[in-house]
């Protein structure tokens, strides 16, 4: 059994908080540009939107992102993967390993810098994201799912 399955629960590290904070700051650049554009025609509306954007930015940076990171946890059991998340609404998704078709490892520029990744578990008709786990954990998870042959199907000699 892989190392990842020995841990009772995997939580996202402080790095995830930094990544999401930088992402949010980058996202604020186009928002600021739009507000500047609005300011040329409707200065009052631009002022209101500017103040609102700053408040939302500050609240998300200081409170929401750390709380969301604390709420995120993954449990890798023998037959299931349990994903728990949510700040205001707590959500738990239990994914039977047998229903996973394949996995996609996604890495943004910042994630690459911090050696983090997101694993998308592709299910029949939908998908579940396992966010901000370390790259080694992501690789372990994918290798395990490929080795285990989750579907129980046999090689069809393609």
């Amino acid at each position: 059994m892989k190392k990842i399955f020995d841990k009772p629960k995997i939580r996202v590290s402080r790095t995830a908080v930094i990544i999401w904070r930088i992402d949010l700051t980058i996202l604020m650049i186009p928002v600021a540009l739009v507000i500047v554009l609005i300011d040329a025609f409707f200065p009052v509306i631009a002022g209101v939107l500017g103040v609102a954007a700053v408040i939302v930015y500050a609240v998300t940076m200081i409170f929401y992102i750390p709380m969301y990171c604390r709420s995120l946890s993954y449990t890798f059991e023998k037959n299931n993967i349990v994903v728990r998340k949510g700040v205001f609404y707590k959500r738990s998704a239990v994914v039977p390993i047998s229903s996973i078709q394949y996995c996609v490892i996604i890495q943004g520029l910042l994630q690459k810098r911090f050696k983090r990744c997101t694993v998308a578990l592709m299910l029949a008709g939908s998908f579940i994201l396992v966010r901000q786990i370390s790259l080694s954990e992501g690789d372990e998870l994918v290798a395990f799912l490929n080795e285990e042959d989750p579907g129980g199907g046999e090689e069809d000699g393609q």
Binding site: I105, Q107, G108, N146, D149, D156, Q158
Partner: peptide, 25 residues
């Protein structure tokens, strides 16, 4: 045994589709 893909400019993706999961080609 699988179809393997690496793609993406800024957002890198890599995945492999095992042959036994394929329903049609």
């Amino acid at each position: 045994n699988s179809f393997d893909v690496r793609s993406g400019i800024f957002l890198k993706r890599r995945y492999s589709i095992p042959n036994n999961k394929i329903s049609s080609i």
